[in-house]
Amino acid sequence: MASRRPDHPATAQIRLDLNGEQTTVAFAPHKTLLEVLREDLGLTGTKHGCELGECGTCTVLLDGRPVLSCLVLGVACDGAEVRTVEGMADGPRLHPLQETFADLGAAQCGYCTPGFLLASKALLAANARPSRDEIKEALAGNLCRCTGYLKIYEAVELAAAKMRGDEAEPSEETLYGRP
């Protein structure tokens, strides 16, 4: 035991479509996708809150589905398509969800934000006009301690409208409270 170096066994290597880029990465084979992204690929936009799949902070899109990257083995991702918060913007243009999260204060401390953005992105890909209840259900695995979620719902609704091409502005109540 005394000479064991647990993080230096043989390395694993996988190929990923990472945010649209073909990427090869080598890492210790017992690492989770979360650890590989943060530590071996330098993508620290994906955060961790509980390490046990209980909070949604580490959400990324794996082949289009939002998953808990703290419970995904890196070695199991060979050939997969992975989308993280770093890949949401289109070059210098923010994704509509990023725009509305910024505009409406849906990101307070910002720590849970990447997870919420990706879960929301998956929702809007499947449902262009989600109801408030559908948004709540889709985001039910993501905890936020700052916002009380309300500004997040409003941001998702506004982004959905913009993505549909609707003329959409936040309501007065969203910006100023009820008169």
Binding site: R38, E39, G42, L43, T44, G45, T46, K47, H48, T84, V85, E86, M88, A89, L94, L97, Q98, F101, A102, D103, G105, A107, C109, G110, Y111, T113, P114, L117, L175, Y176
Partner: peptide, 23 residues
């Protein structure tokens, strides 16, 4: 006037460096 926070864009793009993001 309602407006974005000065750090809003860095937070929604995952660029904000929290302590554990430092290496």
């Amino acid at each position: 006037t309602p407006r974005r926070k000065v750090d809003a864009v860095s937070k929604v793009t995952g660029r904000t460096l929290f302590a554990d993001d430092i290496a």
